[in-house]
């Protein structure tokens, strides 16, 4: 009791700056109206199902297959993006070459390009007579309408995350560390793996988690390229839409709730990672 009173006087003392009431009040209103109430509605709707009904809808064989496809594809795409993102960030920070600034700007395109456009174009590129497909399909590499297609389009959608989390860290990385490591007789590979990699590892992890989280919810681009076959290439967000078309609202909501809870957990992990990132600040 006394500690909370002390805390509140401490808080009041800090408040020389005006506007806490206004700004916090406004933010909380928006967060409540836009975020909390809709989320509550979602959970309330799911709660109209009995636990066994909820389980049957959220964990049917079809739903399990859809979660599996969503997670495997998102995971693989996030791994690929982590590698590609590391290469991109490294090259953009460390080397000078022709077209560098242009490429640096282009990397953000997946953020800016509407996902429906991305899906439409990617589906076109990788089919039998598409620009890439005509070379890949004869080799037996089918991209369109397979899980590989889902992965490819998710790699596109998530590309900027790792680059943008690793890039600033690489830029601030102290040159002296590398010099020291070299002076102490480390090979280049040892320097990379024992000095640089540990330093950027948290950022890589954050980037990976962000890509993964984004990929799990992605809908617009995937529907165009996945083929949407149940048990094979159906993703969880498509399952929600599909259940809605059957007028099964509560069941669709059950799947949505599972996805939302997973997103929440991922978000907590990301926030934890970011705090861990800044632990030396």
């Amino acid at each position: 009791m006394s500690s909370s009173a002390a805390k509140s006087t401490a808080l009041r003392k800090r408040r020389v700056l005006p506007g806490l009431g206004l700004s916090l009040g406004y933010s909380l209103t928006v967060v409540t109206l836009l975020l909390l109430i809709p989320l509550a509605a979602c959970f309330a709707k799911a709660a109209t199902l009995t636990p066994s009904q909820f389980w049957a809808a959220a964990w049917s064989e079809r739903a399990q297959a859809a979660y599996f496809v969503t997670f495997i594809c998102s995971f693989v795409a996030a791994i690929i993006d982590t590698f590609l993102g590391l290469i991109l960030a490294w090259v953009l920070v460390r080397y000078d070459f022709y077209g560098k600034r242009f490429i640096d700007s282009l990397i953000d395109l997946p953020f800016a390009l509407p996902t429906a456009v991305a899906g439409l174009v990617y589906a076109n590129l990788y089919t039998k007579n598409g620009w890439f497909g005509q070379w890949l399909v004869p080799w037996g590499i089918e991209v369109s309408f397979t899980r590989l297609g889902i992965i490819v389009v998710l790699v596109f959608v998530g590309l900027p995350f790792v680059v943008r989390t690793v890039q600033p860290l690489l830029e601030t990385l102290d040159n002296d560390l590398e010099d020291a490591s070299e002076l102490l007789g480390a090979t280049r590979w040892q320097t990379l793996s024992m000095v640089i990699f540990p330093a950027i590892q948290p950022a890589l992890l954050t980037g990976f988690a962000l890509t993964f989280a984004r990929a799990i919810g992605e809908f617009g681009s995937v529907v165009f390229i996945s083929g949407n076959k149940q048990y094979k290439t159906e993703i969880a967000p498509f399952l929600i839409v599909s259940r809605l078309e059957e007028y099964a609202y509560a069941e669709a909501t059950a799947v949505a709730v599972v996805l939302i809870v997973i997103s929440l957990i991922l978000l907590l992990i990301i926030n934890g990672l970011e705090r861990w990132n800044r632990r030396y600040d």
């Binding site: 076109n124 039998k128 309408f145 076959k229």
Partner: peptide, 21 residues
């Protein structure tokens, strides 16, 4: 024998005509 289940009729036509599947 169905390689792709498009979500709508038009998607199926595009698949068949334009993508030659």
């Amino acid at each position: 024998h169905v390689p792709v289940l498009e979500s709508g009729g038009r998607g199926a036509t595009t698949t068949f005509l334009n993508k030659q599947i």
